[in-house]
Design a protein around this nucleic acid. Structure first.
Lengths: 167, 167
DNA sequence: TATTGTTATACTCTATAACTATA
DNA sequence: TATAGTTATAGAGTATAACAATA
């Protein structure tokens, strides 16, 4: 070790990776993977999901729960199956999700008299209140995304993703 | 099945849903959800994932496995940790994934003499062969995506998603 | 002490089959 | 027979903690 190296030991300690390296940590060639839309989607989605959990932490709603509250709010009286097909959720998976919303007092089920197999869904007063607050918190995330992509980029992305759903 | 049923089977199959409806099935208002990037990402990613499974069915590689094969192929001699950080996989989750690739004879581990804690990774001859076939099959998916978005749209999407990873 | 790979574990999301009650 | 909601269950994918071997 040279004198210069010794003098800078504290700097070296803070420096992220060790100096002596094999092929690692510098540049790993992802090859064709860089161009895979599926790969880019996965990475981006994990990032946005982390942003969602951070933004809504104080309320503690999952993305699925928020989406259900929004749909019930805009379409009062829909049945569980209606909401499921609208959001692409399996009926079997919807039951526990909905029961969580009921347990926390955000939504209620009501048997539909015309077809007693069906339950229509409504928001409680608390549910409407929590939804408003959740949407406000979610706005922060969308603002971060807009800052990251630019306003035009964000609109482009939304449109491209919407098209991709028809794949 | 009766004779009449059999005769009209094709008609019954084509018949759209029942005529009398409540609010359902027509237009559910998604409200602000339509503009949520996270929501659009989720739906699009599920769609592309389904396309991936369909395209690679005959080979039976998962997206994660394919990504690992690509990275090993382009960077022979990387350690497990190197691959993990490059692909954003937890080391703990990488172990079973890699062992599956070993068990099917696609990849091998080799203790690194300079640091006997580390394993370097290599593709077998079979692994290289399967990778080539998998990439060819995957091309079909990417072509479907290009058909769906247009060439320019596809490039735009990849770039926007890449930016989003830095959120 | 720190790091590599491993095990064990848990939680979420998604998927399928089978049940009930209603129609 | 068919449908709405439910239950049970299984499989990915992701996350953390703790351990043995090695540095």
């Amino acid at each position: 070790m040279s004198a210069r190296d010794a003098r800078n030991a504290h700097v070296r300690a803070m420096r992220t990776p060790p100096v002596v390296e094999r092929e690692s940590s510098a540049a790993v060639d992802l090859g064709p993977l860089s161009g895979f839309i599926g790969y880019r989607l996965r990475r981006a989605q994990l990032q946005v999901l982390a942003g969602f959990e951070q933004a809504l932490r104080e309320i503690g709603l999952s993305p699925g729960q928020l989406s259900v509250l929004v749909v019930i709010s805009r379409n009062p009286g829909l049945t569980q199956s209606d909401v499921c097909t609208a959001l692409g959720i399996q009926r079997a998976n919807f039951t526990p999700l909905l029961h969580a919303l009921e347990a926390t007092g955000l939504a209620t089920r009501q048997v539909l008299p015309a077809d007693r197999r069906s339950n229509t869904l409504q928001l409680t007063a608390l549910g409407r209140d929590v939804l408003v607050r959740a949407l406000a918190l979610h706005e922060r995330l969308e603002r971060r995304i807009t800052d990251c992509l630019g306003g035009g980029g964000r609109a482009q992305l939304a449109e491209l993703l919407r098209k991709l759903e028809a794949l």
